[in-house]
């Protein structure tokens, strides 16, 4: 590590770069209202953003699009568990169970 003390300066800059977007409107509050139509549109932010973070995790392996993968099977299991049952832990159990199961099966298949 050749940064030494610069490394701590870098951490502080990174802290600012990550905290300012998060704090922006929470701190400004009423003084910086977004237009009504934008606010309406923002209701779709969580769905769009969560899907944009999840989809590459599920459909991309090493930069390549993979339609059939243990992670896709695991994601399907987690979605079904979340849709069909109210137990909040079940999607984790189902998803990780399927992920490990399918990975072991593939390993056994390929010898």
């Amino acid at each position: 590590m050749n940064y030494d003390w610069t490394l701590w300066g870098l951490f502080i800059l990174l802290g600012l770069a990550t905290t300012l977007p998060r704090a922006s409107f929470i701190v400004l509050g009423e003084r910086a209202a977004l237009p009504e139509s934008l606010q309406k549109a923002l209701r779709y932010a969580p769905a769009a953003a969560l899907a944009a973070i999840v989809a590459p995790d599920v459909f991309v392996t090493g930069g390549e699009l993979t339609v059939l993968s243990p992670r896709l099977a695991a994601a399907v299991a987690a979605v079904l568990a979340a849709l069909l049952f109210r137990n909040p832990w079940l999607p984790f159990i189902a998803g990780m169970g399927v992920l490990w199961g399918v990975e072991r099966l593939l390993l056994a298949w390929m010898g």
Binding site: A17, P21, R22, S24, F25, I26, Q39, L42, A45, P46
Partner: peptide, 15 residues
């Protein structure tokens, strides 16, 4: 900063 840009949207939505 770019990796955290999505939080401007979240911050505005929850403000």
């Amino acid at each position: 900063f770019v990796l955290n840009l999505r939080f401007i949207i979240f911050s505005a939505a929850i403000a």
